[in-house]
Structure formats: C-alpha cells, structure tokens
Computed example of a mutant assay.
Amino acid sequence: MSVLLLSTTNNVKNGWGNITHEYCSFLNGKVEFRLLLPKNEPRYSYASYDIDYILPEFAPSIGKINIFEYLGFQYKVRESIIHTLVEFPYAWLGARLATRYRTPLIINALGTYAIRPLLKWPDKYFAEWAYNTAKIITAPSIFTKDSILKFSKTKTPIRVINEGVNFARFQKEIDMPELRNLYKDRKVLITVGGLKPRKGQDLVIRALAILKKHRNDFHYCIIGKGGFEEYLRNIVHEENLESNVTFLGELDGDRLVKYFQLCDIYVHTPRLIDWNFEGFGIVYLEASACGKPIVATNSGGIRNAVIDGKTGIIVPENDIDRIAQAIEKLLDDQSLRSNLGQNGREYARKNDWSRIGQKFLNLYSEVS
C-alpha cells in the first residue's frame, strides 16, 4: 500500500498545517507515502518525510485560482490511494488525478472550505464532483458532516473522525517560574488562534468587562495574530482592561505549551460568520491534554472537541452574559476546574494521533 497526500501547508502554526504535519509524522514508517504541497509553500526543517512542492498555489475559490494551471497540472500517480488532507480546491485536483489513474480517493472535509464552495456557482459544481468521485469523505465533526449533506447531493459515505492531538507533546514538564510570578495573584485565561472575527476573542473581552465591575482576579492572554487585533485592542481600551489583557502574538513549540500549562481556564468562543466556522477546534484538545477546563460556544463542530459538562462548559453562540457566567463559575470553583481538566485529559488521550491515525489506516485498507 502506498498513499499520495495533498495539502495546502505543513506549517504547524496553521490549523491545516498542524494536521498535515502530525498525520505525516504518524504515517512515517507505517506506510509508504508522498506529500504534495503548493510550489510556493515555505520549507520547514522539522519535516522528516518526502515532499514534492509542485501543486498550484492555493486559493479558496475557482474564481481566484489560475484555472489553466490547475487544468494543466500533471503528476503520474503510482500510489495505490489518493488522500486529500484538506478540502477545496485540492479535493477537486485529487479527484481529477483519481479519475485519470483510476485510483481510490479519500477526502478530508475539515470545515469552512468543505461547505462554502457548495454555496455558490461554479465552486459548487467542482466541489460536488470531487465529493461524488471520492470513495469516502471524512469529517471531524457531526456538524461538518450534516452541513455537507445539507448543501450537496453526494451519496459518498461520510465518516466522522475527530482531529488528533499530539498528546505527549503537552505532557512534558516545562519550567516557567517567571511566568508564574508574573501572574501569581491572578487566574490566567488564554485563547489560541488567529485574530479574526469568527474566533470570538471580542466576546471574551466583553465578558471580562462584566466581571471587572466586581472582581479583578483574572488575566487574559490572547495568543495569535491577524487583522482583528486593532479592533480587539480598541475594545480593551474602551473597557478599561489594559491591566487584565495581554496580546502575546503568535507562539509555537515549548513557548505555546508553557501557556497551555500555565493557564487556569482555556476560553475560546467562536461564532459562525457567513459559513466561516470551526469544523472541530484542535486547540480544545491541546488545552484538554494539559488538563485545563474549557469555556466554549456552541458553534460549528465544537461539540466533538468539547464535551459539555464533562471537559468544559458550552454556552450559546454570541452570548456574552453566559460566557461571563461560565468563566466566573470556573474562577470560583477549583474542584470543578480540576474535574473538568482531568476528564479533558482522558478525552485528549483517546484522541491522540496514535488512535486517530489508525482510523485512517483502516480506511486505506477498506478502499484499497
């Protein structure tokens, strides 16, 4: 058995890239595979697997790609299975290769770009054709699966397989006395993710402004970068929260693990905006792997990443008052924080890449 993988990136700071790198690392030594990435993708030294940088540049819509470059793309498929680790438009490219070389195709439909192409023409035509060409589609959440079925006519079976987490990465002890001293009198909350409207960091800031009226025992660290930062900083200023909120920018490696281990509560309150949504939310499992309780909103595929009442508290989307109440409940109840965190650690362990990856290997056996 050999597998041809297609993806947009293996940059571990990116959601797609994190999935791609961790999955390729899992596959190493188990099956023969080759990863195809865009020709303009940066080269990362941590990649210890075979990569060809030959794919056309990524764009989220047919109208934005170089259609002649996509139509003219050539690759002689010698592998026995094609597996696109992301959806549109590389699923369409994978489907063309699968058709040409009569090779079974598996499509990972992760989130936003599994659905948005189905909402407009001509993207809908290309996305549905790719889905119908596949032997199996995988989705990381029931929400993503149901949304594909809602907006497409595909008869291809869709299997729900959660995203995986590198559990061991978050278990190693990291010395961080300077960080603990910095926040020693306050409970620490963090959010990790791009600074964009659908991630919902503004909802957390508004919720903390409610709490600031009667308490001042918390500090919120925002980890990530993006075009939403100026807007978020303006809210912090308006709500007089400068002493309670820190923008840390993008962190990776042990620096990121430090903050996951440091925090008392992981709070991440996304919203669905024009079918931009969280298909799963790997950061929730990363927080759970560190034994941290979670506050999340009922948005997209979150319920596959957070178990309400067991690993965290899920509140209605966009409900600032309920977010504030959930945060306060955890701030005031150390026992609840501990119980949710312990349950979360076990849930993350069950979603380690060693288990999630095996589910994909089983699919390879099924279609080959």
Rank of each mutant, 00 (worst) to 15 (best):
L4I: 09
N10L: 07
N11K: 13
V12I: 13
K13S: 13
N14T: 15
G15A: 07
G15F: 06
T20V: 05
H21W: 10
E22N: 13
Y23A: 07
L36S: 03
L37C: 10
E41T: 06
P42M: 02
R43D: 08
Y44G: 05
Y44Q: 08
A47E: 14
S48L: 13
D50V: 10
I54P: 04
F58M: 06
P60F: 06
L71V: 06
Q74D: 12
S80W: 00
I82V: 10
H83A: 01
F88C: 03
Y90F: 15
W92K: 02
L93H: 10
A95S: 01
L97E: 06
T99Y: 13
R100I: 05
Y101T: 00
I107T: 06
T112N: 00
I115G: 00
P117E: 02
P117G: 06
L119W: 04
K120W: 05
D123K: 02
N132M: 08
K135I: 09
K135T: 09
A139Q: 03
P140M: 01
I148G: 03
K150T: 14
K155Q: 15
V160T: 08
I161P: 12
N162T: 13
E163M: 13
E163V: 11
V165W: 03
V165I: 04
N166A: 07
R169T: 06
K172F: 08
E173V: 14
I174H: 01
E178M: 03
N181D: 01
D185S: 11
L189W: 05
I190R: 01
I190G: 00
L195Q: 03
K196W: 12
L203D: 11
I210F: 07
L211H: 00
K212F: 15
F218S: 01
F218E: 02
Y220Q: 08
F228L: 09
E230L: 14
Y231H: 15
Y231F: 10
L232M: 05
R233W: 11
R233I: 05
N234I: 08
H237C: 10
E238D: 15
E238N: 12
N240I: 07
L241N: 05
L241E: 05
S243P: 00
N244P: 03
G249Q: 14
G249M: 08
E250F: 07
G253S: 02
Q261Y: 09
L262T: 09
C263L: 07
V267T: 14
H268W: 04
L272R: 14
D274I: 02
W275C: 01
I282G: 00
V283T: 14
E286Y: 03
A287K: 10
A287W: 09
S288E: 15
G291L: 05
K292G: 15
P293T: 01
I294W: 08
T297N: 06
N298Q: 10
G300F: 04
G301E: 04
I302P: 04
D308T: 02
K310F: 09
K310W: 14
V315M: 04
P316R: 02
E317P: 00
N318I: 13
I320Y: 09
K329A: 12
L331C: 11
S335A: 14
S335G: 09
S338Q: 05
S338D: 13
R345V: 11
I356E: 05
Q358P: 12
F360R: 10
N362F: 09
L363Q: 10
Y364F: 11
Y364C: 12
E366Y: 15
S368W: 12
S368G: 15
